[in-house]
Simulated assay, not measured.
Amino acid sequence: MSLFNFLVSKTIMHVPKPIVSYFAKGYIAGSTLDDAIRVTKELNQQGMMTTIDILGEFITRIDQAVAFKNNGLEILQAIDQHKLNANLSIKPTQMGLTLDKERCFELIHELVAEAKRINNFIRIDMEDIPTTDDTLEFFRKLREEFPGHVGTVLQAYLRRTPQDIIDLADGYQNYRLCKGIYIEPRLHAWKHPQAINRNYVTCLERMFKQGAYVGIATHDESLVFEAMNLVRELGLKPDQYEFQMLLGVDEELRKIIVDNGHRLRIYVPYGQDWLPYSKRRLKENPFIAQHALRQMFGLKKH
């Protein structure tokens, strides 16, 4: 790790809001749904799909969960109205998982039912370890009632993930596979980057061989390489998988993916609660801060 990256990872949680805002502004659509719609239209014109997400998680009151559910319905309706090539991502803690599990499931069920009605899709994001079992339980229940309209996320840095994939093989399978960003104890999560990458490829191959549709979510060029190799070796068609990337991250790589005939979905977050998201992303990927500094001072990458 470079000294710059080390300093970013250690200090980002204490950086003033205006500075974080400058670094992160290219990685968030804006504060309103109109911003997310505008960005999605631009990406659709470039041949890319999106998943729209309103920022916010780990709420403290159920009325906040209801408000986020209503926001989700508004997003689905906007996607349908504007004929966007997009779907919706939600977080269980955004819907009140840590407050009232049954009510949380009811709210998510309402969203997935609406997604089915308009022939769209809900991605139930994965959060930290205490929420993992409940999230997978929700996915199991919802996929029985709404196959084709709901999926979840599995994280390659968790030691449990290969077994989770096997355990979920008895039904409809639609996953986003990512490395994982939450800070988890070593007992539960691989820490070495090489171990995480090897587990990622192992999990991806297992998912494909079980017939899962996978959103290959990574900005790591080595993993993109491995995924493309697997796609070719297994003879998969373009409609059997997709790549996924965050808004604003490595636009050259995303062009390479699309130009090589692969489908790509961009994660488009928006909302007032952008600060925690931005700090997590900067901590995970200090390159964002490096890129912003180069732009600020007119420097070129050598």
Results as ranks from 00 to 15, higher is better:
T60F: 13
T60R: 12
D53I: 06
A29L: 03
G30M: 08
I118G: 08
I122H: 07
T132M: 14
D134F: 15
R140V: 11
N119S: 15
A67Y: 04
V39E: 05
I59H: 02
L55A: 03
A86V: 07
I37P: 05
K25Q: 09
S9A: 11
R117A: 15
A78F: 07
L111I: 12
F139T: 00
F58E: 11
A67G: 07
I12N: 00
L97R: 13
R143H: 05
G47Q: 13
R143Q: 15
Q64E: 15
I62K: 11
E57K: 01
A86W: 02
A115W: 06
P92L: 05
K25R: 13
L97E: 04
P16R: 04
I124N: 09
Q45H: 11
P130T: 05
T131V: 13
L33I: 10
V39N: 01
D35P: 09
A113C: 03
T135Y: 07
I124Q: 04
R61F: 11
T98W: 03
A65N: 06
E74H: 13
L76E: 12
D34Y: 00
T50M: 05
Q45R: 13
Q45L: 14
P92K: 10
G72L: 14
E74C: 09
I124R: 09
K10S: 15
D35R: 08
E110Y: 01
T93R: 11
I124P: 05
R38S: 11
A67Q: 07
R38F: 14
D34A: 14
Q45D: 13
R103K: 14
I129L: 07
T32Q: 06
T60L: 05
S21I: 01
P130Y: 15
N44G: 04
Q64F: 00
P92A: 14
D34E: 13
E144P: 04
F68I: 12
D63T: 06
I118R: 14
R117L: 14
A36I: 01
G72I: 03
E42N: 10
G26I: 01
F68R: 00
R123F: 08
I52H: 08
V112H: 02
K83D: 08
G47P: 06
